[in-house]
Amino acid sequence: MPFISLPKPLSNHYIHHNLCFNTNLPKWKTTTTRASSSAAPGVDLNTLQSAIDKKDSSAVKEALNQLNEVGWAKQWSSQPYVSRRTTSTRELTTLGIKNAENLAIPSVRNDAAFLFTVVGTTGFLGVLTGQLPGDWGFFVPYLIGSISLVVLAVGSISPGLLQAAITSFSSVFPDYQERIARHEAAHFLIAYLLGIPILGYSLDIGKEHVNLIDEKIEKLIYSGQLDAKELDRLAVVSMAGLAAEGLTYDKVVGQSADLFTLQRLINRSKPQLSKDQQQNLTRWAVLFSASLLKNNKVIHEALMESMSKKASVLECIQAIEGAA
């Protein structure tokens, strides 16, 4: 899942990768979509498309609000009231979250599989090449065996490089792409339901993220004055991907970046939360987002399909509204 960097002063964009904050925005390819493609007759989506193209958060919100008023963007900001409460692990289990007690424990599935493959492969090749005649039977196994040591050294000196290799290797898992789509579509959908405009997204390996824009929220985060109301909203969006995986799989793989993002948001909020309050916020955010995902399962699946086809942001919004 995506790497997170906090916003810089005077930036115009609030970005989420599971949440991701960055002012160096990619130039997303967009396709101008006419209202006749899937909107109701007489509904013009060109204003919304133009706002997305300009990366103007205020204009995106205004366009969606206007579309909501004329009866098209009915799902936009349809869940404006988010109120934190005390939540237990049992509630998560009752809702359908699998292994709820382990949600906050980072998964080592991909790391273990990568290292096991490297060690196993080099060990097998070392034994095999040990049968070569003469000095070849000594030097070749020695060189092959050193690969594992090099991998461990790289992990110690430059963990980012090793993580990139592990991420690429993870694509061999049959459920990897489906997990990514389910995870990122959950962030996209929950943000949309809570009224936080989406700027872009990516499902590319190592670059998975959903970008959100909200100048007001960004200023609060940068100043370290994120209030409880906005923290709750962002916590729900942050935990959406984790919740989506938890509802489907026995083990959640992509929660590390989400939990890291939530912690960064908590650290920039006022008043500061105690450890118990932070744990409760995490449980509640997972419960709330999981509830929304269960209640909007058809929409979530439709959005997953659109994102998997690399649809534009506007096309994804159309998929949400069309599946409602």
Rank of each mutant, 00 (worst) to 15 (best):
Met307Tyr: 01
Thr167Met: 02
Asp53Cys: 01
Gly195Ala: 03
Leu95Pro: 10
Leu189Ile: 05
Ile52Val: 08
Met1Asn: 10
Ser36Thr: 12
Thr117Ala: 15
Leu64Thr: 03
Leu199Cys: 01
Ala302Leu: 05
Asn65Ala: 02
Thr89Lys: 09
Lys229Asp: 15
Asn46Lys: 03
Asp111Gly: 03
Asn267Met: 12
Gln278Lys: 11
Asp53His: 00
Phe260Gln: 12
Ser308Met: 06
Val210Trp: 01
Gly145Glu: 00
Ile157Asn: 03
Ser202Cys: 08
Lys98Gln: 13
Ser269Ala: 15
Arg34Met: 02
Val150Glu: 03
Asn68Ala: 15
Pro41Asp: 04
Lys297Ser: 08
Pro2Gln: 09
Gly206Pro: 07
Leu193Asp: 06
Lys219Leu: 10
Arg85Cys: 03
Leu48Trp: 00
Leu149Arg: 01
Leu128Glu: 07
Ile196Val: 15
Val140Lys: 09
Asp44Met: 00
Ile105Met: 12
Val172Ala: 11
Leu45Pro: 02
Met304Ala: 00
Leu67Asn: 03
Thr248Ser: 08
Ile266Asp: 05
Ile180Pro: 02
His16Arg: 14
Asp250Tyr: 01
Leu199Glu: 07
Asp56Pro: 07
Gln177Pro: 00
Gln79Ile: 01
Ile217Asn: 05
Pro174Thr: 11
Glu321Trp: 08
Thr93Arg: 11
Glu245Ile: 07
Asp214Glu: 13
Ala63Asn: 08
Cys316Gly: 14
His187Glu: 04
Pro197Ile: 00
Gly241Asn: 03
Asp214Val: 04
Gln263Leu: 04
Leu234Pro: 09
Ala228Pro: 04
Pro7Arg: 13
Gly200Met: 05
Arg84Ser: 08
Tyr192Phe: 13
Thr94Ala: 12
Gln278Met: 11
Val236His: 02
Ile4Pro: 06
Val172Glu: 09
Thr122Ala: 14
Pro159Phe: 00
Pro141Gly: 07
Gly134Arg: 08
Lys219Ile: 09
Ala228Asp: 15
Ser289Val: 00
Asp111Ala: 13
Ser256Val: 02
Ile4Met: 08
Ala244Trp: 11
Val60Ile: 15
Pro26Leu: 00
Asn22Ala: 10
Lys8Met: 04
Gly42Lys: 01
Tyr81Ala: 10
Ala104Met: 13
Leu152Asp: 05
Ile299Thr: 15
Lys310His: 15
Lys294His: 02
Trp72Lys: 07
Gln277Val: 05
Ala323Trp: 05
Glu245Thr: 07
Val60Pro: 01
Ala191Val: 07
Tyr176Gln: 09
Asp250Gly: 15
Ala51Ile: 02
Tyr176Asp: 10
Leu199Ala: 10
Asp53Trp: 00
Glu101Lys: 13
Ser274Phe: 04
Glu230Gly: 05
Val60Glu: 08
Phe173Arg: 13
Lys216Asn: 11
Ala113His: 14
Tyr176Phe: 14
His183Asp: 00
Tyr81Gly: 03
Ala100Glu: 05
Glu245Pro: 09
Ala324Asn: 14
Ala73Trp: 02
Ser146Thr: 11
Ala113Gly: 05
Ser38Gly: 10
Lys54Asn: 13
Ile299Val: 12
Lys54Gly: 05
Gln131Gly: 02
Ala244Gln: 10
Lys219Phe: 01
Met239Phe: 06
Ala240Lys: 08
Ala40Glu: 06
Asp111Ile: 13
Leu10Glu: 14
Gln79Phe: 03
Gly42Arg: 03
Leu193Pro: 05
Gln279Ala: 12
Ala164His: 09
Asn102Gly: 04
Val236Trp: 03
Ala311Val: 08
Asp250Ala: 12
Val210Ile: 09
Ile205Ala: 06
Lys54Thr: 10
Pro106Thr: 05
Ile221Ala: 10
